[in-house]
Nucleic acid binder design. Structure first.
Length: 858
RNA sequence: GGGCGCGUAGCUCAGCGGGAGAGCGCUCGCCUUACAAGCGAGUGGUCGCAGGUUCGAUCCCUGCCGCGCCCA
């Protein structure tokens, strides 16, 4: 036991010790019913960790540590999410390369020392290898931070979402989905990001308010007045296939079934009726194009209209005019647009419309919601492409109902987050598009045969054998073919795409649990117990994981989901880097100490947004220091009585030694604290567990220890001293274990002074055991004596004298029962208050103490 | 526009049918031999607003206002 305990260096010291001793290693021999397994959110490696990560990962660790101390064998792996654009971008910039999937794999490839002027094209497999090389460095940094924060992760079970094992899992799961008809290939209108040139799924959309303008256009009608529509997308006029109005709209009912001609392009289009046409919007009649928005897609599908695409995947108008534009004038007008960007085409067509007189008045500026890819900065277009989909209930009421049912089987923390899931499932309007036109990801393990003309047969994909997974179809050869047949008529071609991030992330429970690669582990830990995650990805990560597990096993992937809230800065805004939040997670830990930062994090209940609060961290640090000092003192008292024996081992004095009513009262109160903390933790309310423990701890220090100090030193007989020491020992031991999940470093430090092994493998306290030691102790006694002590202190404080000042007489009055309780601790009260004469009177009413101070000497 | 959550002491937050609380801050005091990065005492709120239910409402119901998030 050090003479002057300190928190300096405590994180490094203990995180190394835990690592060396394997304190948090998962025991693979533990029976399944004793296992508690965690589906850790894999952070994105190429991003950086921020304060929000520290916050939410601490919550998971609190639960993991509690469960471990409760006797569960905790399976707590860490994953890394290597997926996605950030990694691709970093590799491109760092090495000066770009991925060209048409190139063959070069096993001897070494990246250039310095990026050249032009990006060097390399094969996908080489590209992926560079991604892996680069992400290893990121992973090291992440692990260092997590260790310093004190996460009780078993680092021998680390996985990455794109390594060999994960690719095999993702491909196997996909092939099984395909075999069961849960995955399919379809050519369909698809939301398309023209910057990233990739398809975007419903889950990745967001609406943004953007300025636009209504353009009023007149469509000519043979033998009638022109029909006037309003549109924000005049450049889609050549893609117009119909006009639409609401079936009940009397203004347009006479037109249904008739045709009009588009201005400039002179294409004959029908006027049709559909309930989704909004009579309140614009002139109440709209043009249907291929495709201006998702409503256009619905109209196209439900009204069986032709397609007349003009927007290309590069975000420019296609050079060739649609066939429907047949008049020379119309083709001439289109020729002015082909090849132009959308913005340039709009300018050009507005000018032409103005000139022709079809544009009525000036465009009217408005703000309207526009669909964006959540990571993109240009509005999405809709193009028709061939993509892989997984059925998700969006087109199948029966599956939707099953998935809704899974949501109700899951225990949510907090409960109300369930609604987010249900809203999402109810709002699905199509299957899950999983193809992405990227390189660094899990490729689809399929090839397509090429017919005699060299055209792929998408209706007859060749799938990889499960035993060969993972495969990269761009460099591996499908069964029954030779490498020379790639790309030649009668040969084969690879599916060019990779899976959506969520298509692999949705399998984290399978990847972490060793599905099909480690059957013993899988049987031991799956289905898992806990999925901790943020609420904004309920629709993506949580839902997709439930879906994949439902498809593959017909079960939930976990029993509980704990949803964490946001970190808010002091202005109640979501924390963001641009707001000058310069503090890095590591800096935060170094500045305040890991236990202190964890203490702050623990103040955020599941689902509750929490303010970034340095004050809370300072409070946490004070608590940690207090634990050090109080422990040293308590152990010193024990040592004073029993010598080295008190420090030797776990043998605590038995309950028989605890004879004093005050001591029993303290333990009775402690037993209640253990009950409350345990119940709160079991309900995932770690915040309450910490609160009750902390409140008790301060009472323990400020009242109890002060009261029994004199007695514990032996000033009032050996029996009383032994009783106090035994109580102090039990209380300290219990408090350290209650605090251990929150403050793993300082509790381990103190534990090491007097106990063998790690506090983090110690048993969580049993209220029954504490209660047994408490015997007939009554918590009210502690309240009563505490109140009396407080009254004496108040008298001294008001007299502005030292707490050491002596009291000539103190007369305790009040309710007879309460006064009687105080009477059971007169020795301790006199000792702590410096009271010469103490009298007790049952007068009824509030407890009061009349104090007469001894006048200062001299 | 729909859904969910939140509006309680200067700040951060508990409480959720019968006493309005904690920590921090602030004020005053104390070098008490575990801790001055400490200890003690005190100050501080018509519990967002308006109705309703109830013997009684911060807590339940309705409406409104404000903030946040999710979905249109």
């Amino acid at each position: 036991m050090p003479a002057k305990p300190s928190l300096d260096g405590i994180e490094t010291r203990w995180s190394e010790q835990w690592h060396e001793r394997g304190t948090y290693e998962f025991d693979r021999s533990a029976p399944r019913e004793r296992v508690y397994s965690v589906d850790t959110p894999p952070p994105t490696v190429s991003g950086s960790l921020h304060v929000g990560h520290v916050f939410s990962y601490t919550h998971t660790d609190l639960i993991a540590r509690f469960q471990r101390m409760r006797g569960r064998e905790v399976f707590y792996p860490m994953g890394f999410d290597d997926n996605g654009l950030p990694t691709e971008r970093r590799v491109q910039n760092y090495y000066g390369v770009r991925c060209d999937p048409s190139l063959p794999y070069d096993p001897d490839f070494t990246p250039p020392e310095k990026p050249g002027k032009d990006q060097l094209p390399i094969s996908r497999r080489n590209f992926v290898e560079l991604c892996e090389t680069l992400t290893i460095e990121d992973e090291k940094g992440f692990e260092e931070l997590w260790r310093r924060l004190g996460l009780s992760v078993d680092w021998s079970h680390t996985y990455a979402t794109i390594d060999t094992r994960s690719r095999a899992v993702a491909q196997r799961a996909f092939l099984r989905n395909l075999a069961r008809g849960q995955a399919y290939l379809a050519e369909a209108p698809t939301l398309w990001d023209v910057t990233f040139r990739t398809a975007v799924a419903q889950a990745e959309l967001e609406d943004r308010e953007r300025p636009g303008a209504y353009h009023t256009l007149a469509f000519g009608r043979p033998g009638g007045d022109p029909v006037v529509i309003e549109t924000t997308r005049p450049e889609l006029l050549p893609a117009c296939v119909a006009l639409v109005a609401h079936p009940d709209d009397a203004r347009y009912q006479p037109l249904f079934g008739q045709t009009v001609r588009t201005p400039l392009f002179d294409v004959e289009v029908p006027v049709v009726a559909h309930r989704l046409a909004d009579p309140e919007k614009g002139s109440g009649i709209a043009m249907i194009c291929t495709f201006g928005d998702l409503t256009d897609v619905i109209w196209w599908r439900e009204l069986r209209l032709p397609a007349r695409a003009v927007i290309g995947r590069d975000g420019r108008l296609i050079a060739e005019a649609p066939e429907a534009i047949s008049s020379p004038a119309g083709r001439e007008h289109y020729a002015q647009l082909g090849g132009k960007t959308i913005a340039a085409a709009r300018t050009a067509i507005v000018a032409a419309l103005q000139e022709s007189g079809a544009l009525l008045g000036e465009p009217r500026a408005i703000n309207h919601p526009v669909k964006f890819y959540e990571k993109g900065d240009r509005p999405l277009e809709i193009v028709t492409t061939r993509q892989w989909y997984i059925r998700n209930g969006g087109r199948d009421e029966q599956l939707r109902e099953q998935l809704r049912q899974r949501g109700s089987e899951l225990r949510w923390h907090p409960e109300y987050m369930r609604v987010r899931y249900e809203n999402w499932v109810d709002g699905l309007n199509g299957d899950w598009l999983i193809s992405r036109q990227r390189f660094f990801g899990v490729p689809f393990p399929v090839w397509y045969p090429l017919d005699a003309d060299g055209q792929p047969r998408h209706d007859a994909p060749i799938v990889a054998a499960e035993a060969t997974l993972p495969v990269d179809p761009s460099s591996d050869v499908p069964p029954g073919y030779t490498a020379e047949q790639r790309g030649v008529p009668g040969g084969f071609m690879a599916d060019p795409d990779v899976m959506d991030t969520w298509a692999t992330s949705s399998l984290t429970p399978l990847i972490a649990s060793g599905w099909e690669s480690d059957p013993a582990l899988f049987a031991q830990v799956f289905p898992m117990n806990l999925r901790p995650q943020a609420h904004e990805i309920i629709r993506t990560w949580l839902f997709s994981t439930v879906l994949r597990s439902h498809d593959e096993f017909g079960t939930l992937p976990w029993t509980d989901a704990a949803i964490s809230g946001w970190i808010l800065d002091p202005d109640r805004k979501k924390m963001s880097k641009s707001k000058g939040n310069v503090v890095t997670p590591m800096g935060l830990l170094e500045q305040h100490g890991s236990d202190a930062v964890r203490y702050w994090a623990a103040s955020g209940r599941p689902g509750t947004d929490t303010a970034f609060d340095v004050g809370q961290m300072k409070t946490g640090r004070r608590l940690a220091i207090k634990i050090l000092n109080a422990s040293r003192f308590v152990l010193g008292l024990a040592e004073a009585g029993e010598g080295e024996a008190a420090l030797a081992g776990d043998a605590a004095p038995g309950p028989a030694a605890i004879t004093e009513p005050l001591d029993r009262a303290l333990l009775a109160e402690l037993a209640r604290v253990v009950d409350t903390a345990t119940g709160a933790f079991e309900g995932y309310d770690y915040t309450r567990a910490l609160e009750v423990t902390e409140t008790f701890f301060w009472r323990f220090c400020d009242d109890y220890v002060e009261l029994v100090k004199g007695r514990a030193y032996g000033g009032h007989g050996e029996a009383g001293a032994a009783s106090a020491r035994a109580t102090l020992s039990i209380a300290l031991s219990t408090l350290l274990t209650l605090f251990a999940p929150f403050l793993p470093f300082v509790t381990e430090e103190v534990w090491s002074w007097w106990r063998a092994g790690s506090v983090h493998r110690a048993r969580w306290p049993e209220a029954a055991e504490v209660r047994e030691a408490a015997g007939d102790g009554r918590p009210e006694l502690l309240d009563a004596v505490g109140a009396a002590l407080s009254a004496v202190r108040r008298a001294k404080s008001e007299a502005k004298v030292s707490m050491k000042a002596e009291v000539a007489t103190a007369r305790v009055s009040g309710d007879a029962d309460v006064v009687a309780l105080v009477g059971q601790a007169t020795v301790d009260l006199r000792s702590a208050g410096g009271i010469w004469e103490l009298s007790l009177v049952g007068t009824g009413g509030e407890l009061a103490v009349d104090v007469v101070l001894v006048p200062p000497a001299g």
